[in-house]
Design a protein around this nucleic acid. Structure first.
Lengths: 264, 264
DNA sequence: GAGTGGTCTAGACCACTGT
DNA sequence: CAGTGGTCTAGACCACTCC
């Protein structure tokens, strides 16, 4: 803990936190820092790796090392769930006015695009358990990618599962060409008579897999936030499971829990 | 991306995911892996760093490298908020039966200890804004550390802020010696006539700071989950702000959002 | 003390980014 | 092409763990 690279990292960390180095600033070339700190290149680079892992600097191959500017976090609120439910009986034009990107992520629609992909799959043991249905049950899987118009990599990847039996009464729901469906998933479910009673969100953070590093254009070793949204209808059935993944530094989740008044 | 260390990491990653190497297994010594893959020690160690960042292996100085066994995540549910509110008017003995560690984290009390520390501080600009009170307002700050009895490092660190003015009517609340207070924060607030209307949780994930690495005994570069719990009373005042920090791999947050029935 | 991982060096050569 | 970061090597020596 009193290693050379630790001391160098501490020095530079203090400079960044103290404002000597400001967000966006370019650090001196590594060769220069080597001379300044009287260490070998590898040792210096080790120090920079520490700072990178802490999210304080960003390395750009061929360009330089930079003090990181904090990226704006998208705020996703559970208020949307009730709002979306209310929208179900709103006129179609009103439903259309909401962008599609937010359908399952609950993100604001400004500047967002999304892509969808439908597939028919068999429930594995994990999904079967969540739905409380037999393994092998046919599920409609929809993969969404939300993307800011100004960015190349998607902001988030969502995967929605719905048991085919629950929605087969309306063949339109099985057809990807009907995307984007105005009004979101709750409206889609309403066309087959399904009303949601409550939604359960399970949130975890974990290191990104190599696939996710690829798809979301992350630095290896960074973490993602995973949300599993479980929709339960008024009959107590789990009617949809939606797994969403975001880069950990791009998202904030907000949950409002209303409390019942005291009964004394 | 086709570097030697990437290929080695990919090979070993496949072995772990494929079950050739099982959780808890000791990897061959680094010198042995060097011979097997015909690379230098530094290159091999680079590959291991990648796997460590992905959470797949764990390095133990002087002992060896091991396939990581997934630690059980603690599940924290927002159901607790209503439950805690109901407890306020329960008899004291019933309130006492709940352990103190869960008071603000919402964690189960089995095998948990906690430590508290009280201090009187002035609100900085950030806190002043959340409370909607002037900068410099006196706040009671309470720092909690929850710790599993079987572990040395704390599981989580909580910091609670309450404006002193709101609770000065009951001097007991300002006294650390009254900890643990049976029934949790909502009961404490009830002694000065404060009833909560709703609670807002803001959840983010970010790399641990050096302080947090120290306090929570983390590997540098890992991430923490930060929860800001904002309690709003029936008068619309923010009466408590509680920041809690957990190691990212130890926690799952669960939120139940109840939906109102359709009114057609 | 044997075994194992952690730090550090000096230097070669490759790869990316911009002018 | 100049500037800058990324990969890789061979080898010395230190630090931790456990018997």
């Amino acid at each position: 803990m009193a290693s050379k690279y630790d001391r160098i990292a501490a020095t530079m960390r203090a400079q960044i936190r103290g404002g000597v180095l400001k967000p966006g600033d370019k650090l001196p070339p590594e060769t220069e820092l080597v001379a300044k700190h009287h260490v070998s290149l590898s040792t210096l680079r080790r120090a920079l790796e520490v700072l990178e892992a802490e999210g304080l600097i960003e390395k750009r191959h061929g360009t330089g090392n930079f003090v990181r500017t904090m990226r704006q976090r998208i705020n996703r609120t559970n208020d949307r769930y009730q709002w979306e439910k209310n929208q179900v009986w709103a006129p179609e034009e009103e439903r259309r006015s909401e962008g599609p990107a937010e359908r399952d992520t609950g993100l604001p629609n400004d500047d967002f695009m999304f892509e969808a992909d439908y597939e028919d799959i068999a429930a594995d043991s994990g999904l079967a358990k969540v739905f409380n249905l037999p393994e092998g049950t046919r599920l409609l899987r929809r993969v969404y990618k939300t993307r800011k118009r100004t960015e190349s990599a998607p902001l988030g990847i969502g995967t929605s599962y719905i048991p085919c039996d629950y929605i087969s009464a309306n063949p339109d729901l099985l057809d990807v060409d009907n995307e984007p469906w105005p009004g979101g998933t709750q409206h889609q479910l309403s066309t087959v008579g399904i009303e949601l009673d409550h939604i359960i969100d399970e949130v975890i953070a974990r290191p990104a897999t190599t696939d996710e590093v690829e798809e979301l254009d992350l630095t290896p070793g960074t973490t993602v936030v995973c949300l599993r949204k479980i929709s339960v209808d008024t009959q107590g059935r789990v009617v949809e499971v939606n797994d969403v993944i975001w880069p950990g530094d791009r998202i904030m989740l907000t949950y409002r829990t209303k409390l019942e008044p005291w009964k004394r």
